[in-house]
Structure formats: structure tokens, C-alpha cells
Design a protein around this nucleic acid. Sequence first.
DNA 1: ACGCAAAGTATACAAGTGTCTACCTTCAGT
DNA 2: ACTGAAGGTAGACACTTGTATACTTTGCGT
Lengths: 235, 235
Amino acid sequence: MPSSDTSLESPASEFAPGKRQLLQAALRLCCDSRSLSSLGLRELAREAGLNPNTFYRHFSDIDDLGLTLIRDIGTQLRGPLRALRQQAAARAKGDNKLSVPRLFGINLIRSRRVVHETVQLFFDFVDQQPEAFIVGIRERYGASPALRQALSEVMNGFAADMREDIRDLKLMPTGISDSQLAVISEQITHHLFQMALDYLSTPARQHELRQQAEEHILMLASGAAVLQRLGQLRL
Amino acid sequence: MPSSDTSLESPASEFAPGKRQLLQAALRLCCDSRSLSSLGLRELAREAGLNPNTFYRHFSDIDDLGLTLIRDIGTQLRGPLRALRQQAAARAKGDNKLSVPRLFGINLIRSRRVVHETVQLFFDFVDQQPEAFIVGIRERYGASPALRQALSEVMNGFAADMREDIRDLKLMPTGISDSQLAVISEQITHHLFQMALDYLSTPARQHELRQQAEEHILMLASGAAVLQRLGQLRL
DNA sequence: ACGCAAAGTATACAAGTGTCTACCTTCAGT
DNA sequence: ACTGAAGGTAGACACTTGTATACTTTGCGT
């Protein structure tokens, strides 16, 4: 029987038990008003119920731990995050009939629904994995250059997925260049992530923030469409 | 003669010399890969050339120091930041002739120029005050809730200025609601600030980032205009 | 059955930390 | 001229931290 353990705790994978415990401890300590680079290695070991020196068996440094933690979180979120977008697209499939208001060749109603569903599912997901998002955003603009860069890469990965989906699902007018699409995807991704922190730390504004996120995406998208159209009419 | 000291060093104001030295020390230590909350009070005093206990004469806590630092930076940036936008508007004044491509009643060429000039001046300003922006962005999503909130307020202040200027300079179509305008201003402000960190830490991409910032603002603005127009055509 | 590497533990040490109490200096207000 | 507060210093306290060396346990390949 190959391990019927269905608990998908964040740092789950094939790490040695001590290593996993340390990673989980770091995640636990970070969420509650700490930054990764401010954690002490002894504190970490204490929280994990291990001897301080065990830390050295697995990591050379706290930055090292941070790096593996971030990469682990990254690979753990990437799949679900993408699945969620396709789920949203599936839900909005019924809206694909013709003769419906269009903006430069794009079915606005459908786009709007896809955006709506995606945003809703995204924040539902944030609610399920708050710690991952908290440390992700904290360190994206945090003190350690290494972690910043790692997170930048992870998020650009998410953005790349989004770009592919936008293309496949035909959510933006043809004519938008690849590079522009890339920029837009990155902006949306970054913005969603950073909103996630406000979302988590201001429960009273959660509904409002979800709506703002939707509007922001729609603005960016239609703005990009308009500008691209205007550009090709010469200027 | 009322103090002809023209050096506008960041924590300048009417603070006692020791207090000022501590604030400046904090700013110095933070920029180079540290977060405010990870600073030690002894370390701080050492950097400032003072006795550790002097810290207690002025602050109760490191968070306390962080708070006054942030508020000080905020009031020091607010004026110049606003002046800079009006300077940009002045430069773009020549473009105000009629019969020129318009989008829903807005002179696109002029808007584009105002945005261009503003963004350029903004990043020039970032180049002049890197430390202020670095700690500002770091702590906006950093570990301490108190600092996060303080920074959120400071940045909303900047956004409020921007909103007024947009209104006064007629950069957006009439018909955009006040609340929407507020949201847009906040998004632009936040985005500019967070880009500032990437800008500072990636000198090779500075030109590219300036351009991206411009496009982002234009997208948001024209997107907002389009959506608002579409909305009032019923939907 | 042996050996060896990986994972984890125990003890120790120098250095740094936050905080306390007590003392000294400066200087404006009366 | 005296007082008292504000700013700054000195020394000491208990504690935590990162790191080093040395030891034990566990489990797998041969």
C-alpha cells in the first residue's frame, strides 16, 4: 500500500522528516508577523521539536531554507492555480453564443465571466492556503535579494501559465503582441498576489477587494485592447 | 537668520540630534538587505555612534522608531511628489489644441504626455531618494502589522493627491465616479511604488520598467474609460 | 553480518541582545 | 542662583544566538 496519506500539508514532498518539520515550523512562525530572514535557527529547531544542530544537516543557512521553502510552495501552488483557471473557463462556457456585445472582436460577457470566476476561485484558494501566500508576498519585496529573486521567478512562472491560458481561451483580442501579453499577465499576477495579503489581513474588506480585483483585471484587459487598436490605426 | 541649512537629508525635521541620528542610522542599515523589524537596538545605537540606552530616551520600541521613520518619510515625500506631477502637467500644456484624436472626450495625446512626464519625473525622484522608497516598499508588505498599516495610510495620502490632480487637470473622462477614481489612483500609486524596488535593484532594466509603468497607467486609464462608457450604455 | 552514510543528539563557548538602575551634563524657567 | 527635566553615558544582569566538536542511532547495500 503506497501511503494513503491524503493530507496535503504545504511542505509535503519527499523531504526527510526533520527537514519537513523545519520547513513547516518556518511557515508557522512566519505567518504570524515575522519575516523569514528574521528567524533564528535555534528558534526554528525549537518550534520543530528538534535539536538546533539538526538544522545544519539539511540547510546551510536560513536563506537556504527560505529558498527551498519558496520553491516548494511554488511547485505546490502552480498546478492548483492553473487548474482553477480552467475550471473557471469551463463554468463560463455557456456564454459563448454569437451576437453579443463585443469589444474589438472579444466576447465581453464571456471574458467578464471568466474573470469573475477566476477571481472568486483564486480568493477561495487564498482562504485555503493563507500561509503560502503570506510568506510569498512578504518575501517578494523583503530583505533578502536571493528570496526576492526566487519569488520573482516563481511568480513569473504563474504568469506564464496565465498567458498561455489567455491565449488558448481567446480572452484577449488577436493582435496583442506576445510581449505585451506577457507584461499584462505579470501585472495581473503580481497584483492578485499582493491583494491577497490585504485580503487576508482585512477580513472586513474581503468582498470589496474581490470586486476591486475583478475590475482591475477588466480595466487592464480592455485598456490593452483599446490601446492596441488605437496604435494600429496609426499614431 | 533662521537656519540656512539647505541639506534636506531625510529624517531632517525638528527632532533632537540623537533621535535624528538614530533614524538616519536605521535608514542606512535597512537599505542594504535588512528589514526594519530585524534591526537590533544596540546595533542601531552603534551605527549612530551613541550609547545603547539613548535609544530608550526617544523610542519605546523598534516598531515605534519604524513608525516615526515612516511617517517622517511620508511627509517628506508628499510635497515633492505632488509638485512633480504639476511640473509634468505644465510641460504637457502645449498639447491642448482641439481636433486631435479623442477617447470618450479625453485628449489622448495630452494625457499620454502627462503620464510620460510624470513617470519620468517619478523615477528620477526615485533615483534621488532610493532609501526612502526601499524601506517604504519593504515594509508595506513586511512583517509588522503596525508598519504595514502606517505605510498603507501614507500611500493612500499620495493617492488622494493624485486623484485631485487627475480631476483638476481633467485627465480622465467625466462620468468616472469618485470612488472609481480613488481606486484607480490607489492602484497606480501602489504599482509605481512597487516597481520602484525592482527599478532600483535591476539597473539593467530601468529603461524597460519606466516604459512598462507608462503603459500600465495608460491601460488602466483607458480601460476605466471604456468600461465606464460601456456601463452607461446599459449592461 | 559488517560497514558506512545519513539523521539526530549533547555539551560547550564566545559574542551579541534587551533591559535595569544609577550617574553625569546641559540648559531653560523661575 | 536653584531646580528640574531632557538628553546622553556607564556598567551589569540574565538570556539567546550561531557555530564547533564529538557522540549515538537508524537503516540500507552488499
